[in-house]
Amino acid sequence: MDSARTSAVLVLKATDLYKRFDDKLAVDNIGFSAAKGEILGIVGPNGAGKSTVIGMLSGLLEPDAGSIEIFGLNFARHRAGILQRMNIASPYASLPGQLTVRQNLSIYAGLYGVPHPARRIADLLELFGITALADARFSKLSSGQAIRVCLCKALLNQPELLLLDEPTVYLDAEIAARTRELILQQRALRSMTVLLTSHDLAEIEHLCDRIVLLNHGRMAACGSALEVTRAILGLDREHAALGEVFALVARTRA
């Protein structure tokens, strides 16, 4: 994988990221990269620094030190151009409740300059099985339906880099499984790069090519699920065991 990654096109390269909030060091010297078409999981216990990293990669938070390059461009200097080619979905981000699903999506299609927005919106609603909700007010949706609309919004501009913060957190098992398959399908179709955070370890193992394990704002390990397992639990391990990894990391935090 490493040699393949070396020759692959790097979509994202974060170097020596550092962020402090008052007296708390949230992110301490983190660096990682993601290649075109790769799904990279950012995982760790609560307070490990996942949201801070996602915040920095989405332009909502400025790092105190370090640099972020996306599509080979410096994020701080080419913010708008880079954001045009990426998107984000997070359970902490929502949409105006008074607007209908279609109106909300058409607003974001306009912001991203999506060509043929009506067709694109119809396709995405169909993909997520929520065509019947197109003219419903966003505030009337269940949390699972709202998450699916936000995922539609995140795919509107056919992003080359997609940031997914807990994408299946409020979805029932069936819809969550379908959403995971859609993520894999979109990656396969367009070589989309995905950065994903999740507390669902099975989901992480199922979706992610590589994992960045954060703990106390530092990078504890990086690699495939098996490589992370070996880095934390010992080189003699033959199978990925992220559950054990998390349990050990949680114990060291206590």
Binding site: S58, L60, Q84, Y92, S94, L95, P96, L111
Partner: peptide
């Protein structure tokens, strides 16, 4: 209204 609807994240993370 953007804060109440938690739309601010989407707007500030867009090319706007």
């Amino acid at each position: 209204a953007e804060i109440w609807s938690r739309n601010i994240t989407g707007l500030f993370a867009s090319p706007l």
